[in-house]
Design a protein around this nucleic acid. Structure first.
Lengths: 195, 195
DNA sequence: GCGCTGACAGATTTCAATATCTGTCAGCGA
DNA sequence: TCGCTGACAGATATTGAAATCTGTCAGCGC
């Protein structure tokens, strides 16, 4: 029957995200977060050892929201080439949608990600591993001809940077963008294909 | 016989580059440039209408030093696939060398380039046009099979961003870098090849 | 006992006064 | 005449004092 809201890490993260949205990355302080939670800032430090670790946790949540739907696609059955294309397009769409629906929040997460480079590296490794899985599957199906799926997965990731790395986000709104995506995907799938 | 040094735009650009190297981008002022030239800053404004246009001209010079050797490769005779690979490797080497030999100056030029986005766009168009030429040549030789050389050139440019776009410069020192370059080039050349 | 508070020291940010710079132009000197 | 100078107004950057924030911890109250 006790409805007193307990202070959990999860709740702090949610409220932190709100505060970031409201105040912007530069102005959002731990004191602001504590105020929004109606506790003292000391309590926040009970759950996160530093402001940096709090921000890192926010970044991690955000990246997980990107990688989870992708993992589902990677786990589906079916021919690898089509699946790889679907996976990549889903990745691009996820990023493009985020930047066009809420550019300020995207900028916030981008800066956050720069600070939390460990988390970002792990995210990248996760994504490349997913691609590697799809490519290995394609090789097993006889659809792809590559010497080493790991290297090939890294190459696919590198070769599609223009469409998923935030440094190029300003080009994602250009009208030629979808044509360019098509061209690169065609080239890469041809490059992987067994002949 | 008059050896009085005349104030030319070219001389101003050279000295400006020196000043940028010495003071750094943030601290280099038009007054500093004028002082280094031993003239009043009003004289500099006689040759460049604004500080921005002076910086733009410096950026342009720098980009031309990148594109000129590439244009020479593009103009050479020979089979297109090998030439395309050589051209791309020369592009990567040029960038990688610059960042590793003088990281501070690279950062300076990077910021300069951000400001002078018109100049950068023209540079990009120039490079893509060079690639388009090589690809068209490859199609004529029967080595490449692509529907549209223009689109394919843009795709090659997009797909190699990781190795020539300055946003990714911090990865160019990694030991895996040359492996990754090889992997992407292999994939792309396979993707272009007639079969 | 246990979780929270709030005061505190040192680090960081803000803000306004001050200094410097950009871009213009009337006038000097060759 | 013609290129250059240097004073000037408005814009931008620097500086240092004051305010705020981060991270800690002794102690309060449940």
């Amino acid at each position: 029957m006790n409805e007193a809201v307990v202070l959990t890490s999860e709740r702090i993260l949610e409220v932190t995200e709100d505060v970031l949205r409201r105040y912007g990355l530069a102005k959002a302080t731990v004191v602001d977060v504590a105020r929004a939670l109606d506790v003292s800032h000391g309590s926040v430090y009970r759950h996160f050892p530093s402001k940096a670790s709090l921000r890192e946790a926010v970044a991690k949540r955000w990246l997980e929201r990107v990688s989870k739907p992708l993992a589902e696609i990677a786990a589906e059955p079916g021919p690898a080439p089509a699946k790889l294309e679907r996976w990549l397009r889903e990745l691009f769409d996820a990023k493009h949608k985020r930047v066009c629906e809420d550019p300020e929040m995207f900028a916030t997460y981008l800066t956050l990600a720069r600070e939390a480079c460990t988390v970002v590296k792990a995210h990248k490794q996760d994504l490349i591993a997913q691609v590697e899985g799809i490519i290995a599957e394609g090789v097993a199906q006889g659809a792809f001809d590559v010497a080493d799926p790991k290297t090939a997965a890294a190459a696919i990731f590198d070769a599609t940077r223009s469409f998923h790395h935030p440094a190029h986000a300003d080009e994602w709104a250009e009208c030629t963008c979808s044509t360019r995506v098509d061209a690169v995907l065609t080239l890469l799938l041809r490059g992987l294909a067994a002949r």
